[in-house]
Design a protein around this nucleic acid. Structure first.
Lengths: 219, 219, 219, 219
DNA sequence: TATGAATGAGGTTTCATTCAT
DNA sequence: CATGAATGAAACCTCATTCAT
């Protein structure tokens, strides 16, 4: 009786295996240079089989995106679990973002791809919405942290969602600087920039009185 | 022997015409979908002639990048020319950046492309350095404004270059949000986010005493 | 042991359902663009099941053809049932053919496909014979009408089968003109052409004396 | 100076060579089974080069069609050149049509393809008009012959164009019967059917008085 | 009976680049 | 300087069919 379920499970596993290979290749050769044929070959599947699991390259990208965003979401929520202090929470989230970008570069790249206008042409409206829904959850986490901070008196009463977006944009922007580490960033320490950026944000929305103790940065 | 110079000048004009067409196509079809053959056809040149002026597609992209960065540099310096107040200068620069992104989207897209890791694979080390040199000038402008502000007592004594990078990353990050305007940003005003972001930066590095008069935002 | 018969009946129903879907898709996307996978999906069957009912695509086409020819045969015989006058019978048959082509386009298209030399390569000799047998019945109906007309003195003593073939070829040829209605036929009324064509045939084989009363055309 | 012209001429030759190969393959394997890759290979060209000469498969088909229709037009006009008698002219045209279908089967098949509804999906409106224009010239030849016959008193005053279409449809329909020569046509002589069909048409529109001398059929 | 995963050759088309003229 | 024909690998995707379950 459970054979149908097992089949279903195996199918999901296959899809997941394909995603693994795709991520691997993405990391090696970049998004543009990775082709379905390559993915199929390294997956030890025929091209036809690939297309049995994913209707198109587009759909593969979307799946990759969602997986990446889900991972990031997990890392984000895990990061704030043990923190009580809103300032510490924000630092922790930022740190998680950086870790994500460094240790899961292929995911980060594909998220970046979606933020490029190439994607506006490449993806259908429907798929973009699916993706962004996943992204939204992450912004919501940030917004909640900020809202909590406001309630606790740590932060000034700023519009929580708007400032969550600013924070995310800043973090993401700084992370992108990584690409310039051999040129424009020469002589600068990316991690310092990162910490300062987050500190700057907290300073700006923090109230004077509240806890200025050094943030405990734990990876 | 002015004929040699004239030839040189004509050559530059040709190259510039090709760039114009390339930008046009980029805007219409996106970077991936634009081919050399298309560029040649619309330029009313043969492919061969294209390859006389540019050794490869790579070189064309680099030229496009540099042109874009030069334009951005011009807009940036023009923006601060009439401002005396460091805070106003920063607002002006940010505004210029937004204008650049909106009115010269093809340039902005190609800058974005360079910030993607696709570029790390696509471009040779040498060319990347060329490009980044141009980018550096813009960061320098920002750093100078911050340094000036520190000297005048408007800003706290932060490391100027580092904070210039932070500011740039933030501005760039917020500008990228544009792609999400139909989904995650629904209900939010991108311009407000933008202004708040810059304000936040200035607040954070500003000294308490100095000019809090409303910044005069002129396009 | 009616269960065996019931199974047989159900099997026929299934085959018929598949044919319905196939016809539907044929009408929508054309013959070339319709694939077994699509047919299976829309039939809510698996591909495997499709291949249980039809050994190959070829066999499906043949079934479709036969179904179409049977329908046409039915319409043809129905058309002449109430007519007494041989001339009226021929008009009625022609009219039925036109109705068939217009209201069952997918059948008409597939008949046309068989008349193309593609079919000579595509189909096995055996299957072609099967198909043509069905087609033959229709020619026979025509031949009988002509033979009747000869016996009754309405028509000259022409070779009945040969003239049946001519009539059919003419009718079929005129029906094909439909495809040219927007170009070559501009300004011409296809129905008039049709009526004149049939009239021409009857005139040519008709004897001078016999009933020249206006043919009663009823759909 | 003439080098440009020579280039142009060579280009036309190449296109023509490609058409030759395409026709050859069409004859061997049928339209559906002939692929661009095959055409390129047998032309001893790369696929890329094929696409330099023809923008798409569609365009190749159209070229083939036009070439075929032009050939048919030539054969048609040549056929009536030496004939004075309108009846003889019509016989000659019909004969030319049959010769065309038998000796240039690939052209005939592709004309047939255009008359199928597959083409309605496959071809763009614009290309269809181009093709039909070429087809129109042939119908015009027929219409002129009929009009002449009416003027000379050989034929009754029928609408020339309409009857030209009927004649063409009949001829074409009869020619299609060829495919059935092993099945439905068993025991019938296609040539006799053909002659009778044309004779039938002439009888029907001919006036009683005019020349009933046996038509001189010359290939 | 029924399923649906798997195949892999083959489909059309695009691409950056070269080179003889 | 300029041309544009030629390349051929590689892109994405579809197809009829099979077979273990």
């Amino acid at each position: 009786m459970g054979s149908k379920e097992r089949r279903e499970r195996e199918k999901e596993q296959r899809k997941s295996q394909i995603l693994d290979v795709a991520r691997e290749l993405l990391l090696e050769k970049g998004l543009q240079a990775t082709s379905i044929n390559q993915i199929a070959k390294r997956s030890e599947l025929s091209v036809g089989t690939f297309y049995f699991y994913y209707r198109s390259k587009e759909e593969l990208y979307v799946a990759l995106q969602q997986e990446g965003l889900d991972l990031l979401y997990g890392m984000t929520t895990a990061a704030i679990r043990r923190k009580r202090n809103p300032r510490a929470k924000i630092h922790a989230i930022a740190q998680a973002y950086l870790t994500f970008a460094e240790e899961h570069r292929s995911y980060f790249d594909i998220i970046n791809f979606f933020l490029n206008s190439s994607s506006e042409i490449f993806f259908s409206e429907q798929l973009k919405e699916q993706v962004d829904e996943h992204g939204n959850r992450i912004v919501d986490v940030l917004a909640n942290v900020i809202a909590d901070g406001i309630r606790s008196g740590d932060f000034r009463p700023v519009p929580a969602k708007r400032y969550a977006l600013i924070l995310w944009a800043m973090i993401h922007g700084v992370t992108q600087l990584r690409k310039l580490r051999h040129t424009i960033l020469r002589g600068e320490d990316l991690h310092k920039i990162y910490t300062d950026a987050v500190g700057l944000f907290i300073d700006a929305i923090g109230t004077a009185g509240a806890g200025q103790e050094a943030p405990t940065l734990d990876t």
